[in-house]
């Protein structure tokens, strides 16, 4: 489908690149957001863009920046941002690069109360789930849901498991989880419906750090069994 730029309320534009989760669209959304972010740093009224699976939300202040001018910035960013399709085969290579963030995980037990359920759903033994999960290389698709909550692509298809039928009222901070075709780490204690397979002591989000979020869009991630 053609790219689409549409007003989303009076103070934002939504750039829609497609209707399905597709890594090349996610990479392109990220590139557009980065190009816009660079433009926004020097443009009054242009807010911080939010990339997602196949879209970019571009906030702007209509008192400061004309809507047509905002659309113009988006068009220019879309022209300069690299086409995501070219980045398709890069996942394994970038993820295995030395810059991959390593997150130590205690799998199973009280730390991962849903490990057995995930194993049951996937027709695997719990130790197979651990091996597959820790053997894969992940990529931060985008962040959302909570401060520092990164949606990680690259989960082995064999581990794909739907969300729990009823969400937990409180998921402990550091919980390593699976839902659908993604993995994630809960940065703070909060309600959540993902399947919890382990837990890490790594601090995912600390507003006092220069880079508050351990994981940023596009980063490569590996999970390392801690026991």
């Amino acid at each position: 489908m053609a790219d689409e730029i549409a007003p989303f309320g009076d103070s934002a534009l939504l750039v829609t690149l497609g209707r399905a989760a597709d890594r090349s669209l996610t990479v392109r959304a990220r590139a557009i957001a980065e190009a816009l972010g660079a433009a926004g740093a020097s443009t009054a009224g242009l807010g911080r863009p939010i990339p997602a699976h196949a879209s970019v939300l571009v906030p702007f202040d209509p008192l400061v920046l004309d809507r047509e001018a905002a659309v113009g910035f988006v068009r220019r960013a879309m022209e300069t941002a690299p086409d995501g399709a070219g980045a398709e085969p890069d996942l394994a290579r970038t993820a295995s690069a030395p810059s991959a963030v390593e997150i130590p995980v205690r799998y199973g037990g009280d730390d991962g109360p849903d490990l057995d359920a995930v194993a049951g759903h996937c027709g695997l033994r719990p130790e197979d789930v651990i091996e597959l999960h820790a053997g894969a290389r992940y990529e931060v698709l985008f962040l959302g849901f909570a401060p520092g909550f990164a949606y990680l692509g690259g989960l082995p298809v064999a581990l794909s498991t739907p969300r729990r039928a009823s969400p937990r009222e409180r998921v402990p901070a550091g919980s390593v989880a699976i839902a659908g075709e993604q993995s994630a780490v809960y940065p703070q204690a909060m309600p959540g419906g993902w399947n919890l397979i382990g837990r890490t002591d790594t601090v995912l989000f600390d507003p006092a750090r220069t880079e508050p979020s351990l994981l940023s869009p596009g980063a490569a991630v590996r999970f390392v069994p801690a026991r």
Partner: peptide, 10 residues
């Protein structure tokens, strides 16, 4: 729907 950024007031 496919997760996307949402503005205040959505």
């Amino acid at each position: 729907t496919l997760t996307h950024g949402v503005p205040w007031g959505a």
